[in-house]
Nucleic acid binder design. Structure first.
Lengths: 211, 211
DNA sequence: TCGTCCCTGAAGCGATGGCTCCAGGGAATA
DNA sequence: TATTCCCTGGAGCCATCGCTTCAGGGACGA
């Protein structure tokens, strides 16, 4: 399975990375349709034939960049993330928000931006990259719902889909806040809005807590 | 100022409408770049030359469709909207949400969808339509902030930008929820999430109320 | 009935889209 | 040194892109 000519193979991997770097940059600016192979070639400094040699066609190229982005983000999510045991519930929720979704907006803005574009689009035949992004998003939802379910359980709140609804609300809000950074909101505002959101979620849970 | 040949002029207006109908349909599916004049011609049944005769070029065409969408939505927002005087604050907030922003998602989904695409995009020269959409969005924010400010005032909560932050949170959430309808959320869920959001806003205000 | 003006139809411009082909170059292996 | 295999370079295919041009057709006021 291993490559025969290591050195040469390594250079190929580097080329792939350079190409994908160019793709995510362009795609985040101009969307699927606006991402042209010749532009990718120009910005990456590699010839068109290399792009096709590595990725086969445009759809696979786009899919590859989504996959790489999701992998990078997943790796970060998997990092253990410690919380002060004395933290309030609200602080705990805020921590989840910042770690799980806020990080996406902060550390992989191009990935999220392009992913949201793909989400909005709809063409005759679904780009592979769109499917991948939606799956990634679903995975992320499950993660958040899992975290919320633990919180609800600790409060003895029966979870009849409540955690899921909260999770959907959270993801939606973060998406929307990120979108707003494309208009007039700046990144610092985004973080403070995340805290506001954490407060709102906390209060919604409080309201449901039996006593 | 009036048209000379009324009948012919009227037909021209109808053609314009048919063209814009085709544009918003295509643009909501495929974005700015994916909206080609020849496709618009095909779907509207009118020749390319008519499109250019009416709108001059592609950028103006896109701008016109955004403008029409915003006008339609504004007209609806301007409609008086009555609230039960006995309504709770939460119900009042929910009513504002449904009337001001929810209506956009429900009644002009293509407009919102395309607008969000434009918001995400960024090309060398900003399309006129994008600027228009962002202005529309700003107007809408002011409206909501105005409504919230009244609520805060009634509760004697000092408004040091709190209303604006809530407004931004609301718009972001609605955008995000709409986005989610492009993935897996259905429209009924959107409405129930709006109520959840109204509850969250209500609780955030409650928390700030001096007593 | 005539001329005017709004709009349409068809043809076609240069540029660019995705994609293919194929002759190599150059490191690794024999 | 000879051979193999990964990758690159560049020319070029055909379709379609945005956009333009211009000769009319048809309803109107005169």
């Amino acid at each position: 399975m291993g490559p025969k000519t290591t050195r040469r193979h390594q250079q190929g991997e580097e080329s792939k990375e350079r190409i994908l770097d160019a793709v995510i940059q362009i795609a985040a600016e101009r969307g699927y349709e606006g991402t042209t192979v010749s532009l990718v070639s120009e910005r990456s400094g590699l010839p068109v034939s290399s792009i096709y040699w590595h990725f086969g066609n445009k759809d696979e190229l786009i899919a590859a960049v989504i996959e790489r982005g999701f992998r990078a983000w997943s790796a970060e999510q998997a990092e253990p993330f410690e919380v002060d045991p004395a933290a309030t519930r609200r602080e705990l929720i805020a921590a989840i928000l910042h770690h799980d979704v806020g990080s996406l907006a902060r550390r992989h803005p191009e990935f999220l931006r392009f992913g949201l574009m793909l989400t909005l689009e709809q063409r005759a035949e679904e780009p592979k990259g769109r499917t991948l992004f939606l799956e990634a998003r679903e995975t992320s939802l499950e993660r958040i719902v899992g975290g919320l379910a633990l919180v609800l359980e600790a409060e003895r709140i029966p979870d009849d889909g409540f955690a899921r609804r909260l999770g959907q609300l959270i993801i939606a809000t973060v998406d929307g806040l990120f979108l707003a950074t494309r208009a007039s909101l700046d990144l610092d505002d985004l973080n403070s809005h995340l805290d506001l959101l954490a407060g709102a979620i906390d209060l919604l849970i409080e309201e449901r807590t039996p006593r």
